[in-house]
Design a protein around this nucleic acid. Structure first.
Lengths: 122, 122
DNA sequence: ATCTTTGACTTACCAAAAGTAAGTAACTAT
DNA sequence: ATAGTTACTTACTTTTGGTAAGTCAAAGAT
């Protein structure tokens, strides 16, 4: 008797599309920061995250804007002023990210211990 | 009056550690697949995901094993036989991933429409 | 009048991560 | 002797991410 396996090819699986997108290095983090702060300017997000490069912040914000997770409001001033806010779509995703963040806090110690043990066995 | 911003530097924020780890390209997906199937061998996971390279599957499984998300059972046979199962730690994370997956399914259409609209404006 | 500062970015260049294809090990069936 | 099996490596290439410097336009300082 054959074992039946579930498949997750990109083409067949819409979940992949979203997971790939928000599963990059910075997207989730930027959404978290925007949720905590309501409105932030480019440099404020930059400072808040601390170790993201301006380039990656710019690129990731564009991607989040394209998918409708983030809204970008430009003021015609000099020096430039741009405000970023999270959209309803982004907000609807956040509880799940929060849950992940909470889980992370609760289990980080276990994970670190596992990792150390694993490395000792090598 | 100064605006107070929350900070998420790697050093100060344990959530970052986990988010970085499971927020890579393949970890969440492998956990999903293992949860759906209980026990899988290397090639079965490979087929199930479809477009992961053997190298990345190998690397990611090791990382998941190191953190204690996945258990690896080796049979001393030839040809080799290795079975992968999800651990209780991995299982405890899964509801959150499932929630994300469910959210993705519900919102993928909106996202795709947003993305198309954004690209047309360029 | 020229120089500096400001904010939100680009651009050019370099390093790290991921993908591809081929190879390895060791035994079994043909 | 050869080919098939399975879980991986290894060498090489491409894509992604990081660093530092540069751009733009106007307001304020010298």
């Amino acid at each position: 008797m054959e074992k039946s396996i579930n498949f997750y090819n990109v083409a067949e699986c819409p979940v992949r599309n979203v997971l790939d997108k928000i599963g990059d290095k910075w997207s989730l983090l930027i959404l978290l920061v925007l949720k905590e702060n309501e409105v932030l300017r480019f440099n404020e997000i930059h400072k808040s995250i601390g170790d993201i490069s301006q380039k990656m912040l710019s690129v990731t914000l564009k991607s989040l804007e394209a998918d409708g997770f983030v809204h970008r409001k430009v003021y015609a001033e000099i020096p430039p002023k741009v405000e970023y806010t999270i959209t309803p779509l982004g907000t609807s995703l956040l509880p799940h990210i929060d849950a992940l963040a909470k889980w992370s806090k609760e289990h980080i110690n276990t994970i670190m211990q596992n990792r150390a043990a694993y490395n000792n066995e090598l």
